[in-house]
């Protein structure tokens, strides 16, 4: 496979096109503008359509419409823009529509900044209004971002549910070698779509259920899909966990920074490993619960969001500590080394 040196945003966009995405609706926001920019050019070449919507809210309703007629569709934004898209995404979840959303996070709250941050773990895994979750995938390299985007379209169709790719400037702006795998199209049932009802009763795509009993049933049906995701779709990576006495928990590029720190700590004789969730929802609970370690140090570019899921996973059996940088500050391997060394020397339990 030929390797190309590509920016993360462009690799994400190209992977989407190769997975059959022909429609993109979005609204510009740094640091992900290269995604709509690439799509505006590339979709034209493959006979697709690109619309720069009048707002994020409009874009999230345009993807609703496209998915309702059975098209592969994507939108992308960054933290405050994702807040605006939450309404439309909840409608997509309620109407069981397969859509792919890319969130290249930035620091918050409010308008915040544009440098790398993981401040949207909560609004990604536990999103806007209504009982629902997107399936959330968090790549740590540009190669993995491209691979996960291709998977995202299949997962969206498989579960008829929004799938989110969660990155930040380190994924969106960085360049690394990428080899696109040959995408193998799969058949999905599209008999529910609203694409002309000649000779059959009309289909209705809707999230409005005024009868509480029917809406309750609908909620249960949606959560049955999430139970299946928890059984079949959990993904994670472990690194040097075989003989680890201490465990770092980190997702995305932060996990790579941890790996560099772990190499140094291992040289000092501190047996530390790493668990990197790749699916943030469904969360890889079992691997954390089964890790026989003295403590877990959760490291995030946030004030501590994923740590709640790590704590729920270990059910109080393993102490979970926290180290975070925020506002767009990226932790260095050295400061992670210092933190772990300090905890090791102080005999933290």
């Amino acid at each position: 496979m030929e390797k190309l040196m590509m920016k993360g945003s462009e690799a994400i966009a190209e992977a989407a096109v190769r997975a059959g995405c022909r429609l993109f609706f979005g609204y510009p926001i740094t640091p992900q503008n290269e995604i709509p920019e690439y799509m505006s050019r590339r979709l034209f070449e493959v006979g697709g359509q690109f619309v720069q919507a009048e707002s994020e809210v409009a874009a999230s309703n345009m993807i609703y419409g496209a998915a309702a007629v059975g098209a592969r569709v994507m939108t992308s934004s960054s933290s405050p823009g994702i807040s605006l898209k939450q309404e439309g995404l909840s409608y997509c979840a309620g109407s069981e529509l397969p859509v792919v959303v890319v969130n290249i996070m930035r620091g918050g709250p409010g308008l915040g900044g544009i440098q790398p941050s993981q401040s949207d773990y909560w609004q990604s895994t536990k999103p806007g209004h209504g009982d629902w979750h997107p399936l959330v995938l968090a790549p740590s390299t540009i190669q993995e971002a491209a691979d996960l985007v291709m998977d995202a379209f299949d997962l969206a169709d498989e579960y008829r549910n929004p799938v989110m790719i969660l990155g930040y400037g380190l994924i969106g702006q960085m360049m690394e070698p990428v080899a696109f795998r040959e995408y193998q199209p799969r058949e999905f049932d599209k008999s529910w779509t609203t694409c002309g009802c000649k000779g059959r009763p009309p289909n209705i795509v809707n999230s409005l259920y005024l009868d509480p009993n029917i809406l309750e049933e609908h909620n249960h049906a949606i959560f049955q899909k999430y139970e299946r995701m928890k059984r079949e779709e959990v993904r994670f990576e472990t690194f040097r966990m075989d003989d680890a006495r201490f465990c770092l928990a980190a997702y995305g590029t932060v996990a790579r920074i941890c790996k560099t720190a772990i190499a140094q700590l291992r040289d000092e004789g501190i047996k530390v490993g790493l668990i990197r969730p790749i699916t943030l929802f469904p969360f890889p609970e079992a691997v954390f619960r089964e890790a026989r370690v003295r403590w877990i140090l959760d490291i995030e570019m946030s004030m501590g969001q994923m740590i709640e899921d790590v704590r729920l996973a270990v059910r109080g059996r393993t102490p979970v500590h926290f180290y975070g940088r925020v506002g767009g500050v990226v932790p260095t391997p050295d400061e992670i080394v210092r933190k772990v060394r300090e905890m090791y020397k102080e005999g933290v339990k």
Binding site: L170, Q173, M174
Partner: peptide, 15 residues
Amino acid sequence: AMMQGKEACWMPSYG
């Protein structure tokens, strides 16, 4: 570096 078969990564300042 990539063409030489090495791992490579390019990160810009942006803003």
